[in-house]
Amino acid sequence: EDYYQILGVPRNASQKEIKKAYYQLAKKYHPDTNKDDPKAKEKFSQLAEAYEVLSDEVKRKQYDA
């Protein structure tokens, strides 16, 4: 799945936009606030993985290549 789609940001998003999108979605899908939703944990880990790659310039360049 596309990391940009997961975070809901365009491919040319700035680091600030990526961070903002991640924090909004992380708050929304955090397992502690969605105890009754088994998919929230999965969504949250996808968000974390996408953010880890896109927030790191080197990893992001490799991902975009």
Rank of each mutant, 00 (worst) to 15 (best):
E1F: 15
E1M: 14
D2Y: 04
D2N: 13
Y4C: 01
Y4L: 01
Q5R: 08
Q5L: 11
Q5I: 09
I6C: 05
I6Y: 04
I6A: 05
L7C: 02
L7N: 00
G8R: 07
G8Y: 03
G8I: 04
V9S: 02
V9P: 00
R11W: 07
R11L: 04
N12H: 09
N12Y: 08
N12K: 08
A13L: 01
S14M: 05
S14A: 05
Q15I: 13
Q15V: 12
K16L: 15
K16Q: 15
K16R: 12
K16I: 15
K16E: 15
E17I: 07
E17H: 08
E17G: 04
I18D: 00
I18R: 00
I18E: 00
K19E: 15
K19V: 15
K19F: 15
K19T: 15
K20N: 15
K20T: 14
Y22N: 01
Y22W: 09
Y22Q: 01
L25V: 04
L25T: 04
A26W: 13
A26C: 10
K27H: 11
K27W: 05
K27N: 13
K27L: 13
K28M: 14
K28L: 14
Y29S: 05
Y29L: 13
H30F: 11
H30K: 06
T33P: 08
T33S: 12
T33K: 12
D36Y: 11
D36I: 07
D36K: 10
D36A: 14
D36F: 11
D37I: 06
D37C: 06
D37A: 05
P38I: 10
P38C: 06
K39M: 12
A40H: 08
E42G: 07
E42Y: 10
E42M: 11
E42K: 11
E42V: 11
E42C: 10
K43L: 10
K43E: 06
K43G: 04
F44P: 02
S45V: 12
Q46C: 08
Q46N: 09
L47K: 02
L47P: 00
L47F: 06
L47V: 12
A48P: 02
A48L: 14
E49P: 03
E49V: 10
A50M: 03
A50L: 03
Y51M: 04
V53I: 12
V53Q: 03
L54A: 01
L54D: 00
L54R: 00
S55D: 04
S55Q: 06
D56N: 06
D56K: 02
E57F: 06
K59P: 01
R60W: 00
K61Q: 11
K61F: 05
Q62V: 06
Y63D: 03
D64G: 02
D64E: 04
D64Q: 02
A65F: 05
A65H: 11
